[in-house]
Amino acid sequence: MNIFRLAGDMTHLASVLVLLLKIHTIKSCAGISLKTQELYAIVFATRYLDIFTDFISLYNTIMKLIFLGSSFSIVWYIRQHKIVRRSYDKDQDTFRYVFIVLPCIFLALIINEKFTFKEVMWTFSLYLEAVAILPQLVLLQRTRNIDNLTGQYVFLLGAYRALYILNWIYRYFTEPHYIHWIPWIAGIVQTLLYGDFFYYYFHSWKNNKKLQLPA
């Protein structure tokens, strides 16, 4: 465990807690894309298949349970909660994520480290995580202005993967044969996707004005 990875995990944890807090306290999910939350639930479900078979550390298991629990409860809140569901804007959140799930499955079947069920599912979850934010970014573009909790959520989510890239660089130089092309490429693609959001987020923060994304 290195500082970049710990910071990345904490940032990731903060992003889901900010979202849960927002939905739980103001009982609203305005501006949140249910599609992205469903994709993240799939990402964690397909990545943590080994949660009960391979014990790595208490930290690892606890964090996996938190990520699984939070992502599924966020989906539950937006879909089922009698008050929260009313603020879900399904007319705007129309991203057809079958167009990203199928290519990720196909890609995971042909580009993976080992053609086993667990390995292909893990690879699929990496590819899917890289593009899972798309419905959320599309929704933000459509609704144009975003409240700062949603902005913080997307920012933290992007920052976590950028920190993971630093962690992979650190591990590449400090551990022998630590070569994992697949998460590296998926992670870079993911961070680049947040690139333009970071740009507008930084400028709105610098000029201390409400974050407005261009149409």
Binding site: D9, N60, Y178
Partner: peptide
């Protein structure tokens, strides 16, 4: 054939 490294990251 080398085994893929264990997945110790989240």
């Amino acid at each position: 054939e080398i085994e893929p490294l264990p997945k110790d990251e989240l």
